[in-house]
Amino acid sequence: MIYSIVAIGDPVLKTKAKNLAADLPAAELQQLIADMYETMYYAHGVGLAAPQIGKGVRLFVMDSGPMVEIDEEDQEEGEELEDPIKRAFINPVMVSETGEQWGFEEGCLSIPGVRELVNRHADIVLRYEDENRQVHEEAFSGMAARIIQHEYDHLEGVLFTDKLSGFKKQLLKGKLARISKGDVKHDYRMRFAGDGKRR
Protein backbone atom coordinates (compact mmCIF):
# COMPACT_ATOMS: atom_id res chain seq x y z
CA MET A 1 0.00 0.00 0.00
CA ILE A 2 1.33 3.41 -0.94
CA TYR A 3 0.77 6.09 1.70
CA SER A 4 0.45 9.81 1.11
CA ILE A 5 3.51 11.73 2.27
CA VAL A 6 2.71 14.29 4.98
CA ALA A 7 3.84 17.80 4.02
CA ILE A 8 5.62 20.32 6.21
CA GLY A 9 3.11 22.11 8.43
CA ASP A 10 1.54 18.96 9.83
CA PRO A 11 2.09 18.71 13.63
CA VAL A 12 3.14 15.04 13.35
CA LEU A 13 6.41 16.20 11.74
CA LYS A 14 7.26 18.42 14.74
CA THR A 15 6.34 15.90 17.45
CA LYS A 16 8.81 13.45 19.00
CA ALA A 17 7.76 9.94 17.94
CA LYS A 18 6.91 7.24 20.48
CA ASN A 19 8.55 3.81 20.67
CA LEU A 20 6.95 1.10 18.59
CA ALA A 21 5.18 -1.26 21.00
CA ALA A 22 6.95 -4.54 21.75
CA ASP A 23 3.65 -6.43 21.45
CA LEU A 24 2.87 -5.18 17.93
CA PRO A 25 2.00 -8.35 15.94
CA ALA A 26 4.89 -9.38 13.66
CA ALA A 27 2.64 -9.56 10.58
CA GLU A 28 1.41 -6.00 11.19
CA LEU A 29 4.98 -4.73 11.56
CA GLN A 30 6.17 -6.51 8.41
CA GLN A 31 3.25 -5.04 6.45
CA LEU A 32 4.00 -1.52 7.71
CA ILE A 33 7.68 -1.86 6.75
CA ALA A 34 6.78 -3.23 3.30
CA ASP A 35 4.31 -0.35 2.77
CA MET A 36 6.95 2.19 3.82
CA TYR A 37 9.45 0.78 1.33
CA GLU A 38 6.79 0.83 -1.39
CA THR A 39 5.91 4.44 -0.55
CA MET A 40 9.58 5.48 -0.45
CA TYR A 41 10.36 3.94 -3.84
CA TYR A 42 7.17 5.37 -5.36
CA ALA A 43 8.28 8.85 -4.26
CA HIS A 44 11.91 8.24 -5.40
CA GLY A 45 13.28 8.65 -1.88
CA VAL A 46 16.26 7.02 -0.17
CA GLY A 47 14.75 7.17 3.32
CA LEU A 48 11.32 7.46 4.90
CA ALA A 49 10.34 7.90 8.54
CA ALA A 50 6.97 6.84 9.97
CA PRO A 51 5.96 10.44 10.89
CA GLN A 52 6.16 11.25 7.16
CA ILE A 53 3.19 8.94 6.59
CA GLY A 54 1.35 10.34 9.61
CA LYS A 55 2.42 7.67 12.12
CA GLY A 56 4.13 9.03 15.23
CA VAL A 57 6.25 5.94 15.95
CA ARG A 58 10.02 5.40 15.99
CA LEU A 59 10.54 3.57 12.72
CA PHE A 60 12.29 4.46 9.49
CA VAL A 61 13.45 2.65 6.37
CA MET A 62 16.30 3.47 4.03
CA ASP A 63 17.99 2.29 0.86
CA SER A 64 21.21 4.19 0.22
CA GLY A 65 21.74 2.53 -3.18
CA PRO A 66 20.82 5.56 -5.33
CA MET A 67 23.03 7.89 -3.21
CA VAL A 68 25.97 5.47 -3.39
CA GLU A 69 25.62 5.52 -7.20
CA ILE A 70 25.85 9.35 -7.15
CA ASP A 71 28.92 9.09 -4.90
CA GLU A 72 30.47 6.60 -7.35
CA GLU A 73 30.34 9.22 -10.12
CA ASP A 74 32.32 11.67 -7.93
CA GLN A 75 34.67 9.01 -6.58
CA GLU A 76 38.38 9.74 -6.72
CA GLU A 77 40.74 7.04 -7.99
CA GLY A 78 41.67 4.60 -5.24
CA GLU A 79 38.89 5.82 -2.95
CA GLU A 80 36.90 3.01 -1.33
CA LEU A 81 33.19 3.09 -2.14
CA GLU A 82 30.71 2.28 0.63
CA ASP A 83 28.30 -0.60 0.20
CA PRO A 84 24.63 0.33 -0.19
CA ILE A 85 22.45 -0.28 2.87
CA LYS A 86 18.79 -1.25 2.73
CA ARG A 87 17.30 -1.66 6.18
CA ALA A 88 14.47 -0.92 8.59
CA PHE A 89 15.33 0.70 11.91
CA ILE A 90 12.94 0.29 14.85
CA ASN A 91 13.14 2.31 18.10
CA PRO A 92 16.59 3.69 17.21
CA VAL A 93 18.75 5.49 19.76
CA MET A 94 21.67 7.67 18.64
CA VAL A 95 24.64 6.51 20.73
CA SER A 96 27.20 8.91 19.24
CA GLU A 97 27.82 11.36 16.40
CA THR A 98 31.52 11.99 15.74
CA GLY A 99 33.97 12.87 13.00
CA GLU A 100 34.35 16.04 11.02
CA GLN A 101 31.08 17.55 9.87
CA TRP A 102 30.60 17.72 6.11
CA GLY A 103 28.08 19.50 3.94
CA PHE A 104 25.73 18.01 1.39
CA GLU A 105 22.66 19.40 -0.37
CA GLU A 106 19.69 17.61 1.22
CA GLY A 107 16.03 17.45 0.29
CA CYS A 108 13.02 15.84 1.93
CA LEU A 109 9.89 14.12 0.60
CA SER A 110 7.83 16.23 3.04
CA ILE A 111 9.29 19.45 1.58
CA PRO A 112 9.26 18.98 -2.23
CA GLY A 113 11.24 21.41 -4.33
CA VAL A 114 13.56 22.56 -1.53
CA ARG A 115 17.21 21.52 -1.34
CA GLU A 116 19.77 23.12 0.97
CA LEU A 117 23.29 22.48 2.22
CA VAL A 118 23.25 20.70 5.60
CA ASN A 119 26.31 19.85 7.71
CA ARG A 120 26.27 16.48 9.49
CA HIS A 121 28.76 14.31 11.36
CA ALA A 122 30.73 11.81 9.29
CA ASP A 123 30.40 8.90 11.76
CA ILE A 124 27.61 7.65 14.00
CA VAL A 125 26.81 4.72 16.26
CA LEU A 126 23.16 3.69 16.38
CA ARG A 127 21.35 1.22 18.64
CA TYR A 128 18.19 -0.15 17.02
CA GLU A 129 15.92 -3.14 16.54
CA ASP A 130 15.72 -4.84 13.15
CA GLU A 131 12.45 -6.01 11.60
CA ASN A 132 12.68 -9.22 13.65
CA ARG A 133 12.97 -7.09 16.82
CA GLN A 134 16.60 -8.13 17.38
CA VAL A 135 18.73 -5.39 18.98
CA HIS A 136 21.91 -4.15 17.26
CA GLU A 137 24.49 -1.47 17.98
CA GLU A 138 26.25 -0.54 14.78
CA ALA A 139 28.60 2.09 13.38
CA PHE A 140 27.80 3.88 10.11
CA SER A 141 29.75 6.45 8.14
CA GLY A 142 29.57 8.55 4.99
CA MET A 143 26.34 8.72 3.03
CA ALA A 144 24.62 6.00 5.10
CA ALA A 145 25.34 8.00 8.28
CA ARG A 146 23.89 11.12 6.66
CA ILE A 147 20.66 9.40 5.60
CA ILE A 148 20.27 7.84 9.04
CA GLN A 149 20.81 11.20 10.77
CA HIS A 150 18.22 12.82 8.49
CA GLU A 151 15.62 10.11 9.17
CA TYR A 152 16.46 9.96 12.88
CA ASP A 153 15.80 13.71 13.07
CA HIS A 154 12.27 13.04 11.78
CA LEU A 155 11.67 10.81 14.82
CA GLU A 156 12.83 13.68 17.05
CA GLY A 157 10.44 16.15 15.37
CA VAL A 158 13.27 17.90 13.50
CA LEU A 159 13.32 18.75 9.77
CA PHE A 160 16.45 19.49 7.79
CA THR A 161 15.25 23.08 7.36
CA ASP A 162 15.47 23.49 11.15
CA LYS A 163 19.25 23.10 10.82
CA LEU A 164 19.64 26.07 8.46
CA SER A 165 20.87 29.51 9.46
CA GLY A 166 18.35 32.13 10.58
CA PHE A 167 18.96 34.00 7.31
CA LYS A 168 18.26 30.91 5.17
CA LYS A 169 15.12 30.13 7.21
CA GLN A 170 13.88 33.67 6.60
CA LEU A 171 14.47 33.35 2.86
CA LEU A 172 12.53 30.05 2.75
CA LYS A 173 9.67 31.11 5.05
CA GLY A 174 7.21 32.05 2.29
CA LYS A 175 8.00 29.00 0.17
CA LEU A 176 7.56 26.62 3.11
CA ALA A 177 4.23 28.26 3.98
CA ARG A 178 3.03 27.72 0.39
CA ILE A 179 4.15 24.07 0.45
CA SER A 180 2.20 23.51 3.71
CA LYS A 181 -0.96 24.73 1.94
CA GLY A 182 -0.42 22.46 -1.08
CA ASP A 183 0.88 25.16 -3.41
CA VAL A 184 3.74 23.04 -4.77
CA LYS A 185 4.50 20.71 -7.67
CA HIS A 186 4.98 17.08 -6.67
CA ASP A 187 4.86 13.74 -8.48
CA TYR A 188 3.74 11.53 -5.58
CA ARG A 189 0.72 11.49 -3.30
CA MET A 190 0.82 14.05 -0.50
CA ARG A 191 -1.31 15.19 2.41
CA PHE A 192 -1.36 18.85 3.39
CA ALA A 193 -2.22 20.16 6.85
CA GLY A 194 -3.81 23.31 5.41
CA ASP A 195 -6.83 21.57 3.96
CA GLY A 196 -6.56 17.93 5.07
CA LYS A 197 -6.84 16.78 1.45
CA ARG A 198 -4.64 14.24 -0.28
CA ARG A 199 -3.33 15.23 -3.70
Rank of each mutant, 00 (worst) to 15 (best):
Y3W: 11
I5F: 01
I5V: 08
V12M: 03
V12S: 09
T15K: 12
T15Y: 03
K16D: 05
K18R: 12
D23V: 12
L24W: 11
P25N: 10
E28L: 10
L29P: 08
Q31T: 08
A34L: 02
M36L: 04
Y37L: 09
E38P: 07
E38G: 06
V46S: 02
G47K: 09
G54F: 13
K55A: 15
G56K: 03
V57R: 09
V57K: 11
R58G: 13
V68R: 04
I70P: 04
E72P: 04
D74I: 09
Q75N: 02
E76I: 12
E77S: 13
E79T: 11
E79M: 14
E80S: 09
E80G: 07
E80H: 10
E80M: 08
L81Y: 08
E82A: 14
D83L: 13
D83A: 14
I85H: 13
M94T: 15
S96W: 15
E100T: 15
W102P: 09
G103N: 14
C108A: 06
L117N: 11
N119W: 15
R120S: 10
R120L: 01
I124V: 15
V125I: 14
E131T: 07
V135R: 00
H136M: 02
E137S: 12
E138F: 10
S141Y: 13
A145N: 03
I147E: 00
H150P: 13
L155T: 12
L155K: 03
L155Y: 03
V158C: 01
V158Y: 07
D162S: 03
K163L: 13
L164Y: 02
S165N: 00
Q170R: 07
G174Y: 06
L176P: 02
A177S: 02
A177I: 02
S180H: 09
G182N: 08
G182L: 05
K185R: 08
Y188N: 01
Y188W: 05
R191A: 09
A193C: 07
D195A: 02
D195C: 04
K197F: 02
R199K: 14
